[in-house]
Design a binder for these strands. Structure first.
Lengths: 147, 147
DNA sequence: CTTGACCTTCCCATCATTGGAAAGATTATC
DNA sequence: GATAATCTTTCCAATGATGGGAAGGTCAAG
């Protein structure tokens, strides 16, 4: 299996497959005489695992750990669960930050008549020097990273 | 006012103030003879505006537009509201993606006893070739970008 | 006049991902 | 068998928003 087929079979782009190899998330693929990477069904299985973990928002670092745990048949399920729970906590943190932003914006938008007239509580809310906007959550939880 | 004071007064780091100047989000600051940037109260006002918008999750591109609308006293409030509503929609999209990830992970974790034994539904869920994990939302909504 | 706290510019790193260029390999078509 | 299309390879660069740090200039207090 060439890298293109492996990509289609796993849902991971060829670019990312090479990248994952480079950063040692996966072991280097075997090569043909012409240096083409070849993939076995087992490799595809690993790539799918990675794709699932990625879709659930795990970072490359976390995936490294998860892959190691996956391969280690004697590891304790508690080790896996811990990572999952930590990730859940992180997701909930981000969800809270997004919810706070949404709430503030909706509040501002609901008071904006949204017609031809220029006065607008939204932009006024941004500009006010008073502390009405609760951006504490965003700041505290590093919301800038929630792209 | 030097850049350090401006940073403290606005809550925007000196690094970011210089960056915002470089990418032309803000106009270049006046300079002293020794090339030190100086900031007026008006500049601080603008920086605070930026900080608020940033805390609400607006991108630099969106902030460029918002700043232009802020300065344009004759623009329609509808123009501002549209941007806000679009951003709200984007936030809700991300919230949905995060919620889907959280739900799946919680489901997997709840079935994992989390003790010394090796069998673990979480990691099995990642590895399964069947389609149990609903990563459709993550895929559809570009969840990889929700860092 | 020295010390420390500022400021300047410049370059690099992050994270996951995509894009492209240049060159070589393979496959399909004529 | 030649040619063209479609792979593949490596390498380099960009994204967005931010931080880190080096090397050197400036300023105020002691």
């Amino acid at each position: 299996m060439n890298i293109g087929e492996a990509s289609k079979a796993s849902g991971v782009s060829t670019k990312m497959i090479r990248y994952y190899e480079q950063i040692k998330l996966i072991t280097p693929a075997l090569r043909t005489e012409a240096s083409y990477r070849t993939y076995t069904d087992n490799d595809i299985h690993t790539l799918r695992f990675i794709r699932r973990a990625r879709d659930l928002g795990f970072s490359v670092e976390q995936m490294k750990t998860l892959l190691a745990l996956w391969r280690d048949r004697s590891r304790a399920s508690a080790d896996v669960k811990l990572i999952a729970l930590e990730h859940i906590a992180e997701l909930e943190r981000k969800a809270a930050a997004i919810a706070a932003m949404t709430k503030t914006l909706k509040h501002l938008a609901s008071n904006c008549h949204g017609d031809d007239r220029p006065d607008c509580p939204i932009i006024d809310g941004f500009a006010e020097t008073l502390g009405e906007i609760d951006h504490g959550i965003g700041a505290k939880f590093g919301l800038a990273s929630v792209k």
